[in-house]
Design a protein around this nucleic acid. Sequence first.
DNA 1: GCGACAG
DNA 2: ATCTTGTCGC
Length: 223
Amino acid sequence: MKLEELKKKQLECAKKVVARDEFNEIKTVGGMDLTFEDLKKTPTRAWASLVVLDLETLKPIYELVVEGEVSFPYVPTFLAFREMPLLLKLYEKAEVKPDAYFIDGQGTAHPRGCGIASHFGVETGEVTVGVAKTRLFGYAKEPPNERGAFTYLRYKGRVVGAAVRTKENAQPVFVSPGHRISLKSAIELVLKTSRYRVPEPTRLAHNLLQKVRRKALKGGRLF
DNA sequence: GCGACAG
DNA sequence: ATCTTGTCGC
């Protein structure tokens, strides 16, 4: 499919994004992540994970990993078309659905207003937050070096997200609403779930994948 | 035209 | 994202 057509899909998606609080109470938060057998190759084998945490204790209450084939390459601003199929497979198989999902990447902080976190939210109707380790789009001043500090990420005067300091002496993470949540609540939720730089749901989902990946690839790379 | 560019 | 030991700083 041509990128011009995919841009249209993103613009359609952007119209459906709800960047306001549209939920009752969040008691559990899930983190989702992906890892690939070979980043250079397309298609390639990949794994996706979901870890659901209790918001009060920040302890995991559910974990799931699925394996699949990823056939769309990584193209900046089109990440959703690469990762969404496996995320949806993961979502459908999950027997525990959290009240909100943290997705690795941007939500509304995207050139066409629909990064992967928003895309996944609109597609499933779930509450989603975009948490990225680096910036894709817009400009933010460096937030003060204290946990909890943040600055707005703007583009042409519009606030599209925030650079949030989740830990002192660590680079900020980039937070933006995915779907059915305001930027304010998204920031609060990220801070509430952060012990280290990367919030716990995302961090544990990532750690789980590292174990799975090592196990799956050992034998092929021993010599 | 050039640089920047989530994972 | 991934390949990787030691190393520097709090």
